[in-house]
């Protein structure tokens, strides 16, 4: 079984999202970087499937040189190889990203059975790179997956809906876009992190094909409506005031 997990480097924002003065991007000078939780689960799923069925896991990202950090983390979490599509600092559109990933998959001399994606990326949330790659490669695609079982040549994938789940069975190779909750990603140890950094990454120079326009004008941090909360008190002595509030709200 050859598994691929596609991940995207994104800023690890906390309580506020700071913007650059030109409003074109997030000001990352004080921020760390991470990948979407959905994608952490995509990596974990690939690693677990390979542990069960044998084979190897490749983590792939399209991004700046620094995105190698996210590939090393994926390797520390059990991926066997990392592929960096060197795209520079600019944000690529989902159409161009998908085309470049599909090209890379065809170029890499590995026949991937399982192509794992996050359901949506954390920062741009386009909901489309997975399905677009599937379309380019002409393989089936399932999205929103929270449970995956692979048996010779096919995958049974479950998608959560109110009151239960929809079950899909698709032949491999297939694109599977997963959601957090499908598994519990392992936490990489210090040793595995150190070891990962010594690994050689495969670097590729993707062609950027943009197609019809989708152009960012600017970003905006929406106003948060209210100011500070009303402090009802400190410590357990605040309990009666809380009870009053709960009565006012009508839940008591």
């Amino acid at each position: 079984m050859e598994a691929l997990a596609c991940i995207k480097r994104v800023p690890d924002t906390g309580a506020k999202i700071p913007l650059t003065d030109d409003q074109q991007s997030i000001d990352t000078t004080t921020l760390g970087f991470t990948v979407s939780p959905h994608e952490e689960c995509a990596v974990e799923e690939a690693v677990q499937q390979v542990e069960t069925h044998g084979g190897s896991t490749t983590a792939l990202t399209l991004g700046p040189e620094e995105a190698s950090e996210q590939l090393y983390t994926a390797i520390a979490r059990g991926a066997d190889e990392g592929v960096l599509l060197e795209a520079g600092d600019e944000e690529w559109r989902p159409t161009a990203t998908a085309r470049a990933i599909a090209d890379a998959i065809e170029e890499l001399e590995r026949k991937f059975d399982l192509l794992l994606f996050g359901n949506e990326s954390a920062d741009t949330e386009n909901y489309q790179v997975g399905p677009r790659v599937a379309n380019e490669l002409d393989v089936p695609c399932v999205t929103g997956i929270k449970d995956l079982e692979v048996t010779d040549g096919s995958a049974v994938a479950k998608r959560e809906v109110t009151g239960g789940s929809e079950v899909y069975e698709v032949p491999l190779p297939a694109v599977v876009a997963v959601k957090e909750g499908i598994n519990s990603p392992r936490y990489p140890s210090m040793r595995s992190r150190m070891r990962a950094k010594r690994q050689e990454l495969t670097r590729m120079d993707p062609e950027r094909v943009d197609g019809p326009t989708f152009e960012r004008i600017r970003l905006e941090a929406p106003e948060t409506d209210e100011g500070a909360a009303e402090v009802l008190g400190e410590g357990p002595e605040a309990a009666p005031a809380v009870v009053d509030v709960l009565e006012d709200i009508g839940v008591l």
Binding site: D123, T124, E125, T213, F214, R216, I217, R218, P222
Partner: peptide, 19 residues
Amino acid sequence: EVTRHRWGGSLLEHARIDG
């Protein structure tokens, strides 16, 4: 010209889409 959510709506993106 669209206004769309990013980061679950904690960021808004103004963009132009042709197609």
